[in-house]
Design a protein around this nucleic acid. Structure first.
Length: 214
DNA sequence: ATCCCGAGGG
DNA sequence: CCCTCTGGAT
């Protein structure tokens, strides 16, 4: 597949596994700009897993407050530090099984870390990606695992980490949730949702209508 | 299925 | 004012 947006990039450009992991936890239900605003302070204050493990809860919450869900995120991050120290020698594990068991780390976060910090090609299905896929009717599934399999079948030997970045970017900047910019979309003509305005995945017709990949 | 939570856009 | 934001845990 042609690269639709050559300038697509990951705003959270961290190569350090721990920083990337923490930043990704913060990014839950939160825009990247707001995450980027707190990470300099955060990473200056806490440098390794032990720092997070022994963090003062109130202080940590204050630093990450503006990212929303600060209580749950602080819990996750402190618990994360403790678990890394107790079970992983203070290092971020590079295996999916281990990552997903960490507090505050789900499938999406784990895949981001694997792909970007460990170079493991993986598909990252997030809210943007999911919406885009449903609109494009690559699948009618909301199950991330099923979506990942569909994507894998469409792009067999590609760089899935970069592919995820590009499609996430596309979902964010073009295929908006509320009012998609179909005029700026390179694949609008291939999209079954195009021409009838915004079509939400819940609309049964959109799921039944034949598409280019069905 | 529901909760967690603040910020920014239309 | 209402919706959405690179989710995860219960």
């Amino acid at each position: 597949m042609a690269l639709l947006y050559p300038d697509a990039h990951c705003e959270l450009d961290f190569t350090d596994p721990l920083e990337l992991l923490v930043a990704t936890i913060l990014s839950a239900q939160c825009t990247d700009k707001r995450v980027n605003k707190v990470t300099p302070t955060l990473f200056a204050r806490y440098r390794d897993a032990a720092d997070y493990a022994g963090a003062d809860r109130a202080e940590l919450e204050k630093i990450i407050h503006s990212t929303g869900f600060y209580r749950a995120k602080a819990n996750s991050i402190i618990g994360l530090g403790q678990r890394l120290c107790a079970e992983h020698d203070g290092e971020v594990p590079g295996r999916l099984d281990d990552l997903v068991r960490l507090p505050g780390v789900g499938r999406k976060t784990a895949n981001v870390v694997l792909g970007n910090a460990f170079g493991v090609p993986g598909i990252t299905v997030d809210t943007h990606f999911g919406r885009l896929v449903r609109r494009f009717k690559m699948t009618d599934a909301t199950d991330p695992v099923k979506v990942e399999h569909e994507i894998a079948a469409l792009f067999p030997a590609g760089d899935w980490t970069m592919l995820s970045h590009r499609l996430v970017w596309h979902g964010r900047r073009v295929c908006h949730a509320r009012r998609p910019a179909c005029g700026a979309c390179g694949v609008a003509k291939l999209c079954p949702s195009y021409g009838e305005g915004p079509v939400e995945p819940e609309t049964a017709e959109a799921l039944v209508r034949p598409g280019p990949f069905s």
